[in-house]
């Protein structure tokens, strides 16, 4: 019996000390982590919406969405972070959209776990710059081995077709969802 109490006391004591210590560290780290995350999103928004000066989070949607404004506080359109499955894991992207959601202004890959040297190239500017001023109607298409001829086409990376197509699919999915919400908003 004495032993059991000893055992329980030891573990409880260690647990309490550990908990106290961690809550202190967490109090210090938490604001910094949130600030880091915010700075990252902010940087990405200004990359995909180059004329933007300020932005506002839209709360009425059930996914993350930002409305972006220029220096005179006129709405420029939206910045939409979205995620989906790539070749090896989750890919998180952010796209800049004009007000009518028919033109893509820019793309930035936030997180990806694709094969280094192959699929990971989707995060490089050589690939992402193709998405500047891309027509969104009917939807984005990835072509292979040829130079894109239509304003809604981009060229897939050689050897990483699946990752390239995954990016395109994630963008299309996100925009479809945004459009659906916009439509229901108009009806209301």
């Amino acid at each position: 019996m004495k032993l059991v109490i000893h055992m329980l006391a030891t573990l409880t004591l260690i647990g309490i000390i550990s908990g106290a210590l961690l809550s202190e560290v967490s109090n210090w780290a938490e604001p910094k982590i949130i600030a880091n995350r915010k700075a990252e999103t902010e940087r990405a928004i200004f990359v995909v919406q180059q004329d933007a000066k300020s932005y506002k989070k839209i709360d009425s949607t059930d996914f993350e969405l930002f409305e972006v404004f220029d220096a005179n506080n006129n709405s420029l359109g939206y910045a939409l972070p979205y995620e989906g499955n790539g070749f090896q894991g989750k890919i998180r992207i952010i796209v800049g959209l004009n007000k009518n959601i028919n033109n893509l202004l820019g793309l930035e890959v936030l997180e990806q776990l694709e094969t280094p040297g192959l699929g990971a190239k989707v995060a490089e500017t050589a690939f992402t710059k193709q998405f500047k001023n891309l027509l969104l109607t009917p939807e984005i298409v990835a072509v292979k081995g040829v130079t894109p001829s239509n304003p809604n086409e981009i060229e897939a990376i050689t050897g990483a077709t699946i990752s390239s197509k995954a990016i395109v699919r994630i963008i299309n999915d996100g925009i479809k969802r945004l459009k659906a919400i916009q439509k229901s908003g108009e009806q209301n």
């Binding site: 032993l3 000893h6 055992m7 030891t10 260690i14 647990g15 550990s18 967490s26 210090w28």
Partner: peptide, 26 residues
């Protein structure tokens, strides 16, 4: 006590790992 030594070690280790994780994230 010897019976709970592994559990105690893990608790101590986990505390320091969490500290490292939080500091690195910040």
């Amino acid at each position: 006590p010897t019976q709970v030594r592994i559990a105690s070690y893990i608790l101590i280790i986990a505390t320091f790992v969490t500290i490292v994780d939080l500091v690195m994230k910040a």
